[in-house]
Design a protein around this nucleic acid. Structure first.
Lengths: 146, 146
DNA sequence: GCAGTTGTCTAGTGAGTTGCTCAAGATTTG
DNA sequence: CAAATCTTGAGCAACTCACTAGACAACTGC
């Protein structure tokens, strides 16, 4: 039940890109150095985010990446789904990538206990991550006791 | 962001064991057949649950497994942690298996945006699963619209 | 006390994923 | 054109997942 490094790196990279939003572009090695991420791996992540329409890029000597959408309009849920796939803890409760369980004896019945419970979990996760914007994310200043 | 088959099989096996709670024991092949689970794999799961104190077992010709605790007193969260490890989506927000991130530039600072967000997710998941008892789980009868 | 049936333990294994590296190519600037 | 940068695709070692196999221990009935 973990998120991948890809998501983690992707979110950390977006933190940097938020700071220069509207200003200059950032090059992969700048982001990589500041966030301590292997540069070639980071590249794949930035490209995925670009293909998804969150970033723009320019090649050449003054090239780099920049945020193309406002941090207000990007949620953590979007980013994680791009990099990690669906949020649902089992695929028979996914809204974005539903798949019927093949071997579950409850699949044919009107209700499945697992589906009920995992559906609640899915909704709780999505509820947080789909309402957590990048701007709120980037402006976290004080930790709470945990 | 998925739960493993181990957790899924484990929870499905416990559904069967709930039904005979207080009555007769169930043998691994009975559970395996009814729930459509590979029997040798199921065995590992049952042993893990036994080591964790949820099940008792008896060997020999009239042997089998039985629930040792009341379904009221077992939560899905307990079961999943036994079979799948901690619930936290990244280890720096785990309450049961905390680990400082080694490479994160925020690790030294007073607050980490990722930690804040993932902490909320962790709490939401735990809040559901640690209050979801096996008895409620086993008595799910009607599906909700999803 | 032996045979047969069951659980117990340890190790192994094939397929797939994760996290990362490398190299060749395209595009932009000076 | 040269240098710097992004782009693409392939490759790979390590790990995890889902499962299998086999030797062993204990319980029951005869």
């Amino acid at each position: 039940m973990k998120f991948s490094k890809k998501s983690e790196y992707g979110l950390r990279a977006l933190l940097e890109l938020c700071e220069t939003y509207g200003g200059r572009v950032l090059q992969r090695h700048e982001i990589a150095e500041r966030q301590n991420i292997p540069v070639e791996f980071l590249e794949q992540i930035l490209l995925a985010l670009k293909r998804a329409g969150l970033l723009a890029s320019r090649r050449g000597i003054r090239g780099g990446y920049s945020l193309i959408k406002s941090p207000e309009d990007i949620t953590l849920g979007q980013v994680i789904r791009i990099l990690d796939g669906p949020l649902a803890p089992i695929s028979c409760v996914s809204k974005t990538a539903y798949q019927k369980c093949s071997d579950c004896p409850y699949a044919a019945k009107p209700s499945c206990p697992l589906q009920q419970a995992m559906g609640e979990v899915r909704d709780a996760i999505a509820n947080i991550l789909d309402h957590y914007t990048l701007s709120r994310f980037a402006h976290t200043k004080l930790a709470e006791g945990s």
